[in-house]
């Protein structure tokens, strides 16, 4: 019970007056504390393992993983083909395999089609490649409107597409998650993989943005 039995303070809002007792956490924070204590007592979770999971998703996994894959796809035709045809073996080799067992599908933007990803069910998202989704991806507004009026949503993100360009919206599930491969910006022929990866933003891989222009 040791680790789960202690709750260090300092998470609350800063305050400028003295409390005789500790700052009482919010109702859900106390429920989570109770759940963690009970599950730890039952041996169902281990506080140290929970800290590792938090550290992994907070500090180690993020859009830089997806950006690396996209940059490699831009530069390496064989890798590009593999990722479009059957990405899972390669992703496993690269250690970018989903801990929840999901299957990744890469959808590529072209001159004719712009792809965009949503999860209308909840918030399914390619964690190993992009990390934890941003708040807006989880909001009702995005989940409903990206399907109903994707162009309007794109415009609010500052993305205006040419008239004739088609928009395809991909609805993620627990089993299948999508990653958009943005179009490679012009004038990037000589760039290294790392320099290319720096142009690949998180939003460009969700489809609510485009890859950055070099020097932008």
């Amino acid at each position: 019970m040791d680790a789960a039995g202690v709750f260090w303070q300092g998470f609350g809002m800063p305050h400028d007056h003295d409390h005789p007792h500790s700052h009482l956490p919010s109702d859900p924070a106390l429920r989570v504390k109770a759940l963690e204590t009970l599950l730890t007592d039952k041996g169902l979770v281990n506080p140290a393992a929970l800290d590792e999971i938090i550290d992994l998703y907070q500090n180690k996994i993020g859009p830089q993983n997806g950006a690396k894959v996209v940059a490699k796809m831009w530069r390496d035709p064989e890798f590009h083909k593999q990722m479009l045809d059957d990405p899972m073996p390669v992703l496993q080799e690269m250690g970018l395999y989903g801990r929840q067992g999901e299957h990744m599908v890469f959808v590529e933007n072209t001159d004719a089609v712009h792809n965009m990803v949503v999860c209308t069910l909840c918030s399914c998202y390619p964690w190993p490649l992009l990390g934890i989704p941003p708040g807006w991806y989880k909001s009702d507004a995005y989940r409903a409107r990206s399907v109903r009026e994707p162009r309007a949503v794109l415009a609010e993100f500052g993305v205006t597409l040419p008239e004739g360009k088609k928009v395809r919206v991909w609805d993620s599930t627990a089993e299948v998650r999508y990653l958009v491969v943005p179009q490679r910006p012009l004038g990037t022929e000589g760039l290294s993989e790392d320099d290319l990866a720096a142009l690949v933003t998180r939003d460009s891989m969700i489809g609510t943005g485009l890859a950055q222009e070099p020097g932008a």
Binding site: P25, S26, P28, A29, V32, K33, L35, E36, L39, V45, N46, A49, L50, D51, I53, I54, Y57, Q58, R99, Q100, I132
Partner: peptide
């Protein structure tokens, strides 16, 4: 607590 409830679910 967001991180904690997430981590428990994943674990």
């Amino acid at each position: 607590w967001h991180a904690q409830v997430f981590a428990m679910t994943v674990a």
